[in-house]
């Protein structure tokens, strides 16, 4: 009696999930295949593989759009911010986990409160601050903001992780005369790798995809990020669909490829803020 019922349930699961998967894949498929077609074919035959394969859209995006520069900028900002988030964040997390006092608990709550309050609400003062520091229109206007933005999740995930490490380990190291810095750098950091990669992926996606702060702080071409470049080019290419689709594909593909390679880590990273909440 039970077996056929469960099979039926599997069948309906397959149907619903396949239907939704098609809804997810259809726009992405349409995007990528049409970016290789001339405008005429995009309108005449939007759903099939390209018959008259062209790279014109990509060439135009690359030459008028300086995508080489946008990618370099985005990669630079993301890498510098991530390195500093992981270093500064893990250092603080180690202290917050080991220091048992009311003050450290208060600091911990102060840090993780940022998980619930979007930094964007402070944008006006950030703009004033960046202008006062003469950093506007440079990549250095984005980096400190992204580091600050990364602190709540870094302290949240990393403090929880360190607290779960066996305390005998730390005691033993102290008996051997190791300083806190030595324990942090030689013992904790190597053990913390999985938690660090979760924090890294969470922030990487946020920073890579951020549009708000480049929009508010950056005009100069030399400092544009991929997201800002896409928004400006998309406006220019409104009527040239090959180019518009090529620009969107250029922005979407690197992250999609990385996701396909590391989907488990990506899913874990992006949902990290919710775990143990």
């Amino acid at each position: 009696m039970r077996a056929p019922k469960i099979k039926l349930q599997h069948l309906s699961a397959y149907i619903i999930l396949t239907l939704w998967s098609l809804i997810v894949l259809f726009p992405l498929w349409t995007l990528i295949i049409n970016s290789f077609k001339p405008q005429k074919d995009i309108f005449r035959d939007p759903f099939n593989l390209p018959k008259n394969f062209t790279l014109d859209g990509y060439k135009a995006a690359w030459s008028t759009g300086r995508f080489d520069l946008y990618f370099t900028n985005t990669i630079t900002v993301t890498l510098i911010s991530l390195t500093l988030i992981l270093f500064i964040g893990s250092l603080a997390a180690y202290a917050l986990a080991m220091w048992k006092s009311k003050f450290s608990i208060a600091l911990y709550i102060f840090f993780i409160a940022g998980l619930m309050i979007p930094i964007r609400l402070g944008t006006l003062d950030i703009v004033r601050l960046i202008k006062a520091l003469h950093l506007q229109d440079t990549l250095w206007s984005l980096i400190p903001i992204y580091i600050a933005m990364g602190m709540p999740i870094a302290t949240f995930v990393l403090t929880a992780f360190i607290k779960e490490l066996p305390s005998e380990m730390f005691d033993a190291a102290k008996v051997d005369g190791a300083s806190e810095w030595q324990i942090y750098s030689q013992l904790v950091i190597p053990l913390m790798r999985p938690a660090l990669s979760t924090v890294a992926i969470f922030n990487m996606i946020k920073i890579w995809n951020d549009f708000w702060f480049p929009l508010v702080l950056i005009r100069a071409e030399k400092s544009r990020t991929v997201a800002l470049g896409v928004s400006l080019l998309f406006g220019q290419y409104r009527t040239d669909w090959t180019r518009a689709l090529a620009v969107l594909s250029l922005a979407a593909l690197p992250i999609l490829i990385l996701y396909i390679l590391l989907s488990r880590e990506f899913i874990k990273g992006l949902t990290a803020g919710a775990v143990k909440g």
Binding site: L91, A95, G114, G122, D125, I126
Partner: peptide, 29 residues
């Protein structure tokens, strides 16, 4: 205590300057 504070300080400084501070200063603004 001083060691712990120095460990926390960089995170606290950047978090206060670029996130918590601007959020509260927006109330004043």
């Amino acid at each position: 205590k001083l060691t712990w504070l120095t460990f926390i300080l960089p995170a606290l400084l950047i978090y206060v300057t670029f996130m918590a501070g601007p959020l509260f200063d927006s109330l004043r603004l």
